[in-house]
Each structure stands twice: as C-alpha cells, then as structure tokens.
C-alpha cells in the first residue's frame, strides 16, 4: 500500500495575541499544529524572545553583562540597549526593587521607571512584578494606567489577585495579561476561566505556566506544557488555547551551575559561560515543549535562541 501522508493539522488553534504599541506589535501563538511541527502545517508565528531588564540593574559580577551595559546610567538606557541587541523581540522589565522585603520602592517610582522604559525602546514591553502578590497588584494597577495605549503585557496575575489586575490591566488599561500558575495545570485552566468570567477577552490572556531550570524539576513543567497544548489542540479546550510565555532567566541563573564562581569550582570553567548554557538549555527545552515566548537575561542567550528559532521555522 502506498504511504499516505496525513498531516496532523487541528481544527483548533492557539490564540494569536499581539502586544506592543501600534506599528511595533509582536504576535505570539496562532498555530494549529503541535509546537514546532512545521512539517504538518506552516507555523503562524515564530517563538518570540524577550530580554529581561531589572530595575535593580544588571549582575555586575558577570563580565559580559557589565561590558554589554557599559555606560548605561538609568534603567531606561539599559532597556534601550537591550532592545537593540540581536534577536530581541520584546523587552521584559522586572520591577524587583518594589519587593517589600527588600528595597520596597514606591509604586510611583516604579511607574515612572516603566514609563521611561516604554518611551526609550522601540520594541513591545512586558512588565514583570516583584513576585509579591499584594505589591504586584498595586504596581500593575498604577502602571497599567501610566502605560495606557502602549498595549503592554503584564506578567502575571495569580488566583489571589486576578480580579484587581484583570480589571485594571485589561478592562481599564487595554493591555494584555498573563495568568500565573506554579506548574498546576488545573489552576492554569481555572485562572483562564475566572479571567473570562470577569470579562477579560481570551485573546488578551497568555499563560505563565511556571518555570524551572533544566535539571531542576523541569520535567514537571515540560509535561504541564505538553498537556496544555494537547488539550488546547486535540480537545479544542478554549480555556487552554492562550499562548504560553515562560520567563527562563531567573531560574536558569539561580542554580548552582550559574552561581558558583570559577574560583570555587575551577574544573567547571567560566561561570558566565555556564550561566548562558543553563539559560539556553532551559529555553530550548521550553520551546520544544511548547512555549510561545521565552524571556532571557543574557544577550548572548537571546541571540543563540533567536537563531535556533529561525532555524526551526
């Protein structure tokens, strides 16, 4: 019998979500095949790569980062430099300084930083909070107001704060929003249901399904993304068809392979190279599982992953 090629093209698809100011938008998702299965049907959009810039500055102990950001005196200058780096699709500003257990920067100061960054870059902007639920609520409400019209992407709301953030960021501010669930597939779906019931259009939602560095419980994340894509495409589950955005940088740079200095572990070689490798390996694995966008810290990782994505299209 002759071989009949049956492409696995689904009647369901991942939602296409665009963010960024008019004329500079970037679009995530949109495909109707399994992640990277371009042999079944052309992929609607490539995986997008974001570069993370912290409002607390870069890690000066990493020589490559120090060299890259040399001469920058403000967060906005850093963001402008990052935005121009090869392979960058969008900038993700993380407002670590707002953390009440650390610098506890004021909401107004953070909003001013966010606005300055938005004005300094010619790429779409994602806003990441400080990982404190209460503070993130206050931050996002204010920043959504300041960035009105910028069509930014806010990462992320959680079960505890989705009402406040959903209402201010999307319903009032017109921006897009990520729902964050710590590697809990049922919660991921539930958050999308709750946001929808609040009136947030499904086309304005992305999912941050959680993160883990490769080798550090990554298989839980990978299987979660797998199952989400399966339900979205095969079962046409409209509450799981949101694009997946995975911030990889913080986890990859937080494991011992990326922390231990060369002086402490000479046989492992350059710490910076190890950190970049962890970041690349983590991001590549997330993309293979189904992330529609990844967020990385080091410009070298961004460049490599961006080339990898182009080669796979």
């Amino acid at each position: 019998m002759p071989f009949t090629d049956k492409p696995q093209v689904f009647s369901a698809s991942i939602n296409a979500l665009s963010f960024g100011p008019a004329g500079k938008e970037v679009t995530l998702g949109g495909s109707n095949v399994y992640p990277l299965y371009s042999f079944d049907a052309p992929l609607a959009n490539p995986v997008r790569v974001g570069i993370q810039v912290s409002d607390k500055g870069f890690d000066a102990t990493v020589p490559g980062l120090a060299a890259f950001y040399e001469g920058c005196s403000t967060v906005a200058e850093m963001a402008a430099r990052a935005a121009a780096a090869p392979g960058v699709d969008f900038v993700a500003l993380s407002l670590n300084s707002a953390d009440p257990n650390e610098d506890n920067a004021s909401v107004d100061d953070c909003a001013a930083t966010a606005l300055a960054v938005a004005q300094a870059i010619d790429k779409p902007l994602a806003i990441m909070g400080c990982k404190n639920v209460e503070k993130d609520s206050e931050l996002f409400v204010k920043i959504a107001d300041v960035l009105r019209g910028q069509n930014a992407l806010f990462l992320s709301c959680r079960e505890e704060d989705y009402k406040t953030i959903g209402a201010s960021v999307v319903l009032a501010g017109g921006s897009s929003l990520g729902g964050e669930s710590a590697v809990d597939i049922n919660l991921a779906k539930q958050l999308n249901v709750l946001l929808s019931q609040l009136g947030v259009p499904t086309g304005k939602i992305v999912m941050n399904l959680g993160t883990a560095a490769a080798g550090y419980g990554f298989e839980y994340l990978a299987s979660t993304i797998d199952r989400v894509k399966d339900a979205a495409l095969k079962q046409n589950d409209g509450m799981l068809q949101m694009p997946v955005v995975t911030p990889c940088g913080d986890d990859a740079w937080g494991v011992k392979e990326a922390i231990l200095e060369e002086a402490d572990m000479p046989e492992w070689g350059s710490r910076e190279e190890r950190g970049i490798q962890m970041e690349i390996i983590t991001a590549a694995a997330c993309i293979a599982s189904g992330s529609d966008a990844v967020i990385l810290r080091h410009p070298e990782s961004v460049k490599t992953i961006s080339e990898y994505v182009s080669a796979l299209m």
Binding site: I185, N186, L187, K189, Q190, V193, L194, Q197, R227, A231, Q235, D237, G238, M239, L240
Partner: peptide
C-alpha cells in the same frame, strides 16, 4: 480524562 479539570468545569 476527556477534558481537563478546573474548579469551574461545570461553567465552561
């Protein structure tokens, strides 16, 4: 296991 559970599954 035909459809993924969420607390609001009856409302979907």
């Amino acid at each position: 296991n035909n459809f993924l559970y969420a607390d609001s599954y009856l409302e979907v």
